[in-house]
Nucleic acid binder design. Structure first.
Lengths: 111, 111
DNA sequence: CAGAATCCTGTGTGATACTG
DNA sequence: CAGTATCACACAGGATTCTG
């Protein structure tokens, strides 16, 4: 199993749950409300369906996201953050707040 | 160049600055105070000197960490978070707080 | 529309050995 | 002590193709 038990350290644990570069960005989108597969794909320029599916499934396993499929034509699937997932809002906000306070790093090519 | 300009989005920006799995853990250690190379290595079980050096250098470039070398025998080098780096404390705390509130994921083998 | 399957690549990382 | 150099690996991710 990929996840026998989460690390004791909260930070390490967080990193285990939101491992890839895309994971956090997907959550960011979901924080704006429920989204369909294609909506997420469109909102994340460059992401492949493979990666999106992979991350979404992992989130489901961890109880961060719920997947709701509607037996309609055309098929519709909605991804929504769980209460646990919603809790990530504060974390993402902290990230953004910090990151925006960092000055653009000195370009080593330009003066 | 690896970093022409940080992403506009704060979250993406954070992800760019603290990319690898080890990056955040190194910051976590530094949050406890200045550390020497070997101290960091010992505190991070499994990390290789290669990786540690790599992350530390990147942090230097981004102004998150300062490197101070003392011309002594034996040589001593101290890594210390900058004011900007200290700002990560809130972020890591948010991560830890959230992560610890997540129940251990359902083992697909048990039950 | 929402994936699944297959193949391939980029890169963070590990292991080991060597140097100032 | 504090790295650096080199090689190799695992895995997130990309591209493409196909199906319910």
């Amino acid at each position: 199993m990929t996840n026998p038990c989460l690390p004791e350290c909260g930070v390490a644990r967080f990193l285990t749950l939101l491992n890839g570069p895309w994971a956090t960005l997907i959550v960011r989108e979901l924080l704006h409300g429920p989204r369909r597969f294609t909506e997420l794909r469109d909102a994340l320029p460059g992401i492949s369906p493979h990666t999106l599916t992979s991350r979404l499934r992992q989130f489901e396993e961890h109880g961060i996201v719920t997947r709701t499929a509607y037996a309609e034509i055309p098929p519709r699937v909605e991804y929504r953050l769980t209460a646990a997932g919603e809790g990530l809002r504060e974390v993402l906000e902290a990230m953004a707040t910090w990151a925006m306070s960092i000055p653009a790093p000195a370009p080593d090519t330009a003066s």
